[in-house]
Structures are given as C-alpha cells and as structure tokens.
Amino acid sequence: MPYQADTEIDLTAKTTSNYIISSQHRRVGNPNKCRWTVSFADEVDCFINSINNNWKDGTKAWGMKMINAALIVVGLNDDNEELKLAKFIDGTGKNVWHGYPADYANRSQDRPTNTILQMWVVNGYISKAKMTKINRGFSCNL
C-alpha cells in the first residue's frame, strides 16, 4: 500500500518506531521549511535506517540516503541549495516521528550530534575531515 502524507505509518515490521510524512516538508514555497525531493518511500527508508542504526539522540535522529556508496540529495532548503542529510523528530515523545532535510550549515538545530557524526565516520559514510566541517557549520561536498 503506498504511503500517504500526514497519516501515521505503522512500521513495527521494520523498526521500533512509527512515522508520519509531513506535508509541510513537501510543499514548494513553504517559508523556513526544507522540502524533500525524494519519494515518500525513500523518506521512510531513510528514517528506518536511522532508527535501526541508532543514529539517535533522545527525541532527535539524523539520517542519509546512499546509492552505490554515495550520499544522494534528499531535499532542498529555502535557497534551493541541495541537502544530503535528514533530521527526524519525535515531537510528542510518543515514538511517532516526522522528518525533513537537514540544513546543518544554516540552522544550528539541524547539525547532527558529534556522536552520530563519529559513527558515520567509523562506518565509512563520511570522512573525518567532512565530520569536522559539518560539526562547525561549514558547508561541504558530502
């Protein structure tokens, strides 16, 4: 069954949390909202991957989408700049999450934690040099 926006998706077969695709992060021209450019299925897969790999810090999590060992663009910011990381939030604390493309270079709250970045380096998703750039808010070619 295809996913629908703004409807809780039961993911118990694949992970330990449920998810809502937020239409706010799908509309063009929504101010201060980054928007996804990947499919609903890819957005959900990105979330499942984040939770299953424990790329979490409390009620926040971060993720990415890889194809052929390369990070792909998952969305755009207000200035149509490409974004390759995603952020997920359990807004109500009830283990029902939603997410959006993370604009870490412009928004402090979108920067992955140092611990999660370190995990990504250990697993070969990003380099140590890219970790320090993301960490300090420098844009870099991921």
């Binding site: 810090d57 920067r111 934690t113 140092n114 611990t115 370190q118 960490n135 300090r136």
Partner: peptide, 19 residues
C-alpha cells in the same frame, strides 16, 4: 566522553564545546 567541536586552553583551564 564526546569529541569536542572546539577547544581552548586559557589560564590553566581547558574550555571545550560540543552539542
């Protein structure tokens, strides 16, 4: 236990930041 984003040592004190 968390790698620092930045550090400074001043007047015999280590200052550091992370998330």
């Amino acid at each position: 236990g968390i790698l620092p984003t930045d550090t400074e040592i001043y007047s015999n004190k280590l200052y550091f930041i992370h998330d």
